[in-house]
Every structure is written in C-alpha cells, then in structure tokens.
C-alpha cells in the first residue's frame, strides 16, 4: 500500500482549510506567527479576510477563537503542537472544553518531526494532555489525505477538535477515496497473530513492520487509530479478541498517549498482552527526524521487536 509519493500532512491541513474557507465564509483561521510553518499562509493568500494573526500569544489566540465561535464562526487556531496544547492548555480546558465551544485546534509539528529544532519544539505530550479533557475530539491522521479529511470532518463536528499533524513528508498510505470517519478506526491489514494499533506517522511504520513480520510467518493485523478520542472500542476489542496480542505505536510519550488510551479499553474489557512503542519517558534532541525516530524508538524495527515480544506473552 505504501505506493504513493510522500507528502506533507500540513499541506493536507492547509488544502482542506482553503477548501472549507471557499465554501463557508464563517470558517476562520488563526495563527500565532507561524503561518509559514503551519502553511496557513496559503489560506491567508486565498482568504485574507478570514485569516487573523494573533502574534506570539497562544493563550490569547485560543480564547479569541473561543469568542469567534460564540458569534457563529468556525475558527481553526494553529501553531506548533507543543505551544498550542501546552501554553494554552488551561484556556483549552476552561474556556473551550468546559463551554463546549466549536473551536478547532491544529497542532502542527507533532512528534519528533520538527527534528533539528530540538526538544523544546518536539511535541510528544499533546495527546496525553488533550485526552484528559471532556468534550474534546482528538484526531491524529496518518498522511496527507487523512489530514485533509480530518479537517473536513472536524468542521462538521459541533464542538472542540484537536488535530495533530507533523512537519516532514510522510508516506502516503491512503487514497483520496479511502474511508475516514471520526471515531471509526480503519483496519488496514487483516491478521490473526497479533494486532498493531497505530496513529499518525507510525501507521506507515506499522505497515512496513507487518510486511516484514509476514515474511517470518507472523500475520499482523494493522489498525489505523486516527481518532484517539472518542476511541473506537468496538474495533479494538474485536481485533484483540481475535489476535489476543497487541502492539501500540505512536510518535509520542508512551505515558498517557494513544497506547495508554488503548490500554484503558483493553484492561477493562479484554485484557490481552500489550507492548507499547513510542518515546519512553524522555525528551528528544536535535537531529534529523529519521535519526531521532531511531534513537527514541519510533521505527518499524521497534514495532517488530515488540511484536516478537508480545507473541511470547500470549
């Protein structure tokens, strides 16, 4: 399936926003002086009257978006995920989620993908800190097409949505017509021996890992859990019941992220052996994203290793 040119997920974000903005003048985009990185500069060019730069002031940006939503607009506020989810967390909690406002948050440069900028800029905690918030929907799309669809779907939801995407080009593993329904995980590959549940960039790594495992006679099911919240319990439980072994994979701290969300489901309803792939209680550093992925354990090799381990625990 990994057969299309790698593309920028943030381009999917920008293309979808432009499309939404053309269809609906109430769709607004807010940025915090990073529009060239988040690519909302492209939206600004097409829809200058629907774009607001709030400067380097994330807390204010998020609550200005809240205010805009109260006048019937659909604001998408964006900056690097580490600043958006971290600096403005309490605004997101107490204003956006507590009031259940129709604000969309675009967390750019998620995971290790921001590379050379180093640890301060590498967002490895957003899924955890967003996931604790009632009313929040969290999307972590896997490629360009999914990011595009995530934005389009978010606009249909009347409430807060956090969309996580990265900086680097990633393999294109879905097609424009592939299904993408919020809250409905996609089974990308069927298998019987174990299930790999992944989100974001780790979906492509999971497919690579599954292919390699198949060559050793291990049939791995691969689930793309693009919606972290609300989590698709049904698909997870059905697969866990079938394969009886799970590996989760995310470009995020393993504490509190997507893997933890899966564990919450499994521990309560289908306790099977689980191994977690992700960053293990560590900050990143400067380097090429691929170098960092290798050092911090976010590659297909890490998934294969954990798959072999989980099979011994069945």
């Amino acid at each position: 399936m990994v057969n299309q040119e790698p593309q920028l997920t943030r381009q999917g974000w920008a293309d979808a926003l432009i499309e939404l903005g053309s269809k609906n003048p109430d769709v607004l985009v807010l940025d915090a002086d990073l529009s060239k990185s988040t690519l909302t500069c492209q939206f600004k060019e097409k829809h200058p009257n629907q774009f607001y730069n709030l400067g380097i002031a994330e807390q204010n940006m998020v609550n200005v978006a809240a205010g805009l939503s109260l006048t019937g607009h659909i604001p998408f506020a964006t900056t690097y995920g580490v600043f958006l989810s971290g600096r403005a967390w309490e605004q997101i909690r107490t204003t956006i989620c507590l009031n259940n406002l129709n604000v969309k948050l675009g967390g750019a440069h998620g995971g290790l993908s921001v590379g050379p900028d180093g640890a301060s800029h590498q967002a490895l905690e957003e899924l955890a800190i967003m996931r604790t918030l009632p009313n929040m929907t969290i999307l972590a799309p896997a490629d360009y097409h999914e990011t595009y669809k995530a934005v389009m779907e978010a606009a249909q939801i009347n409430g807060p949505v956090y969309i996580r995407f990265g900086r680097e080009k990633v393999p294109t593993i879905t097609e424009p017509g592939s299904p993408f329904q919020v809250g409905k995980a996609n089974i990308l590959r069927e298998g019987t021996d174990l299930t790999i549940i992944a989100c974001g960039t780790m979906v492509a790594e999971s497919l690579t890992a599954a292919k390699a495992l198949a060559e050793t006679g291990v049939q791995a099911e691969v689930i793309n859990l693009h919606t972290i919240k609300p989590i698709d319990k049904k698909t997870i439980l059905e697969s866990a019941t079938k394969t009886k072994a799970i590996v989760t994979a995310e470009e995020h701290q393993i504490h509190g992220g997507m893997g933890s969300a899966v564990l919450e489901v499994l521990a309560q309803e289908a306790p099977v052996p689980v191994e977690l792939v992700g960053v293990i209680d560590s900050f990143g550093e400067s380097g090429k994203p691929a170098e960092l992925a290798e050092k911090y354990g976010c590659t297909s090799a890490n998934i294969i290793q954990k798959a072999q381990k989980v099979l011994t625990r069945k």
Partner: peptide
C-alpha cells in the same frame, strides 16, 4: 486572565 480574550474574539466576530 481568560475572558478578556474571549471578549476580544466576540468583538471581532
């Protein structure tokens, strides 16, 4: 420290 920003957003909207 939160709601003046909301008021700004409402005024803008």
């Amino acid at each position: 420290g939160q709601n003046l920003s909301v008021a700004v957003g409402i005024a803008l909207g």
